[in-house]
Computed example of a mutant assay.
Amino acid sequence: MLAETFPTILPSLSHDAQLEVISLYQLAGEKIESGHPPFRHPHHSASSVSLIGGGTHPKPGEVSLAHRGVLFLDEMAEFAKKTLDMLRQPLETGKVTISRISSTVTYPADFILLGAMNPCPCGYLGSRTRYCTCSPKQIQAYRNRVSGPIYDRMDVLLSLEVIDFTKETRVSESSETIRKRVEEARRKQYERYGKEITNGRVPFELLMEKSPLAKMQQLLLQQWASQHQWSNRVQTKIIRLARTISDLKGTEEIADESLWEAMTLRWMKTYTKQQATAR
């Protein structure tokens, strides 16, 4: 439900972005409601061709149809590992290149990837009300279906717990309120870099030129990176995320609180079999 409502907090597409998206959908022979960021939700049985694109007569895949929008992979661990690993190029470069004997085609694929998966094959690891029947070996094999390089390309890793619907819940903000804040943050980023590009795509050198980290912030990031064995790519993503959090909060520089929040969003709660039994 969270993934399906995610597009409601995204700004409407600009004129140029709409033209890009419409062109891709025309190539794929599909229709789209113009003005709104696309939302694609392929089934986990989807082939690599349907996800990435290609075929005898190459056409855009799901990653390109999600351009300027959201690609949601539910039950992410159920996708073929080879297919998931093919997401590396579009996640890194914002485009996908399909090579055939007669020609090579490049399609734009700048999307927000959302993935959801259970903590274990049975889905009850860490539950307070159900008992997990999976062995440690099964749990590790299940998690390894999503490779380390794909995890490295994720900005945020979250572990969600079961919600008790018998208790009263309160919504603090509407999608419209959040969308206005996102629109303002996007505007700041476009002004900062002088073109329609976000913190997630701007060259890292330019990001550091416009928003350098303070010395104490650099030391803090290095300490956490050493403790959690974060790669250089993960550390770069944390800085980009901290800059975005600061934009959403309206601060000109990367705030200490924003960097701390970005680092904690990379820490995903994982239960071992022994911890789950103890609970």
Rank of each mutant, 00 (worst) to 15 (best):
E30C: 07
E30I: 02
E30H: 12
I32Q: 01
I32M: 01
I32W: 01
E33R: 13
E33F: 08
E33C: 03
S34M: 12
S34T: 14
G35L: 07
G35N: 09
H36G: 04
H36F: 15
H36I: 15
P37Q: 08
P37R: 08
P38I: 04
P38S: 02
F39K: 09
F39S: 10
F39L: 14
H41G: 02
P42T: 02
P42F: 02
P42M: 05
H43F: 06
H43G: 08
S45G: 04
S45F: 06
S45A: 11
S45P: 02
S45V: 10
A46E: 01
A46N: 00
A46K: 00
A46T: 04
S47V: 09
S47D: 09
S47L: 10
S48E: 15
S48W: 04
S48L: 14
S48A: 15
V49M: 12
V49A: 13
V49P: 05
S50R: 01
L51K: 13
L51R: 10
L51W: 10
I52M: 11
I52K: 06
G53D: 09
G53I: 08
G54A: 11
G54N: 11
G55Y: 07
G55C: 07
G55D: 08
H57Q: 12
H57A: 11
P58R: 13
P58V: 12
K59C: 02
K59S: 08
K59M: 09
P60L: 11
G61W: 13
G61E: 13
E62H: 03
E62G: 03
E62N: 04
V63A: 07
S64L: 09
A66S: 12
A66T: 02
A66G: 05
A66Q: 03
H67E: 13
R68C: 14
R68D: 03
V70P: 09
L71I: 01
F72C: 03
L73N: 04
L73S: 05
D74H: 07
E75Q: 15
E75S: 14
E75I: 13
E75L: 13
M76H: 02
M76I: 06
E78C: 12
F79M: 05
K81R: 15
K81T: 15
K81L: 06
K81N: 09
K81E: 12
K81A: 13
K82W: 01
T83E: 07
T83V: 13
L84D: 04
D85R: 06
D85N: 14
D85L: 10
D85I: 05
M86R: 15
M86F: 11
M86C: 14
M86K: 14
L87A: 04
L87Y: 03
